[in-house]
Design a protein around this nucleic acid. Structure first.
Length: 277
DNA sequence: ACGAGAACCTGTTTGC
DNA sequence: TGCAAACAGGTTCTCG
């Protein structure tokens, strides 16, 4: 599930509970997720005060007082759950990592498929980290403009859908929000990226901002302080226009089109053939 | 260098 | 009912 809006919601929830606290304990229940968890991570984290929790693309960055940074990625199935100090609920299957804060709060990192990541780096080397180095612009930053997107798409022979999933072109969109954004921009997912010139790129940038901001707002408003009663972070009711709606009528207008599902690079895309060109 | 597809893992749903 | 195939919201790696 986790695309940019979900990760942003998770980061806000984590920040409210972690900032200023110390990591009293870090329990690693296995030695790897997608990749090995660095040796010595526990020693580098335990006892340190948390200065800030930030997001870059779909990565969660937990900044420690000494300049260390914990980098988390939720992959396909990762979820974070906040467990209050007095809650004695035992660990669940696939709870691979558990943070315990100095006030007794626990944060469980559960990841069934283990495509997630836990790494450690130094703040001064953030830009050089192999996972962060190649990332494209943040879609909600003012620097992400139609001009910049058009330039990034120039000459690309790949379908627009695949280009927008490419984190080097814009960082944070995933399979669901790409379908949503293309619907709102009125552009076909099958259109070649290189045919997106300035006017269309501007439309796309507006659609990207609108869809992401609305999703973040929905996350914030439907969770009490971004934490569900269960303690789970980042899960909220979405109102998707096209994703998962194969066969339903086009929701946004009376064009009479139906939502079709196609497969592009082995992943589902949903769109309205009539409205999106 | 680019783009398509496989691979990484586990679990659930779908279709014969 | 049972079993295999398809599918799931991400990213990297390999190959042509």
């Amino acid at each position: 599930m986790p695309e940019l809006p979900e990760v942003e919601t998770v980061v806000r929830g984590l920040a409210s509970r972690m900032t200023g606290r110390r990591i009293a304990r870090l329990d690693l229940h296995r030695a790897d997720l997608r990749w090995p968890i660095p040796r010595g991570l526990r020693r580098k984290a335990e006892g340190r005060r948390i200065e800030a929790v930030r997001r870059r693309a779909k990565y969660i960055l937990i900044h420690l007082e000494d300049g260390g940074v914990l980098l988390l990625h939720l992959g396909m199935s990762g979820r974070l759950t906040i467990v209050n100090a007095e809650d004695r609920t035992p660990p669940e299957l696939h709870d691979h990592v558990v943070f315990t804060l100095d006030d007794g709060t626990r944060i469980r990192f559960n990841d069934q498929r283990r495509f997630g990541v836990l790494d450690y780096l130094r703040a001064e080397a953030l830009e050089k980290h192999p996972l962060l180095r190649e990332l494209g612009p943040e879609p909600l930053d003012p620097g992400f403009t139609g001009e910049r997107l058009a330039a990034a798409l120039t000459g690309k022979r790949t379908p627009l859908k695949a280009a927008l999933l490419d984190q080097q072109i814009v960082a944070g969109l995933g399979n669901i929000y790409v379908s949503e954004v293309l619907y709102h921009a009125g552009l076909s997912p099958r259109r070649l990226a290189r045919t997106v010139t300035l006017e269309r790129a501007r439309r796309l940038v507006l659609a990207i901002r609108e869809v992401l901001e609305r999703a973040i707002a929905a996350g914030g408003s439907s969770l009490r302080n971004y934490v569900q009663a269960s303690g789970e972070l980042g899960y909220f009711q979405h109102q998707w226009a096209v994703y998962g709606r194969e066969g339903e009528p086009c929701p946004g207008c009376d064009c009479g089109g139906g939502i079709r599902r196609i497969v592009q690079s082995n992943r589902s895309t949903f769109y309205c053939v009539k409205r999106q060109r």
